[in-house]
Simulated assay, not measured.
Amino acid sequence: MSDPISIVQGIVLGALQGVAEPFPVSSLGHGVILPSLLGWDIHQNDDYFLSFLVATHLATAIVLFLFFLKDWIRIARGLGRSLRDRRIDPQDTDARLGWLLVAGTLPAGILGLALEHELRDLFASPTSAALFLTLNGVLLLAFERWRRRAPAPGDVRPAADGDARIASALTWRQAIGIGTAQAAALIPGISRSGMTMGGGLLAGLSNEDAARYGFLLATPIIGLAALYKLPDLFGGAGDGVRGAALAGALAAAVTSLLAIKFLLRFFETNRLTPFGIYCIAAGLLSTVLLAI
Rank of each mutant, 00 (worst) to 15 (best):
S256G: 02
L285A: 14
D92E: 10
N136Y: 09
L170N: 15
I33R: 10
F49H: 01
I88T: 09
R77Y: 02
L119V: 12
L272C: 13
G39C: 00
A76N: 09
L53T: 08
I62D: 12
T180M: 11
E144F: 01
R147P: 15
T287M: 14
Y213P: 08
L69N: 02
I5A: 03
L257F: 14
P107C: 06
H43L: 01
D209T: 06
Y278N: 00
I280E: 15
W146G: 14
A184Y: 08
T56H: 05
L257H: 05
A281W: 01
K229M: 12
L34G: 10
L272H: 14
G154F: 03
R165M: 07
G240M: 07
V25F: 08
V12I: 11
L246M: 02
A237N: 07
H43Q: 05
L111K: 00
I11T: 06
D155A: 13
A167F: 02
R271G: 14
G177K: 05
N270I: 00
L97Q: 02
L170E: 15
A245C: 00
S206V: 09
Q44N: 09
S82G: 10
S26L: 14
S82M: 08
F262N: 10
V156H: 10
Q174S: 07
D232I: 11
L284S: 14
A160H: 05
A15K: 03
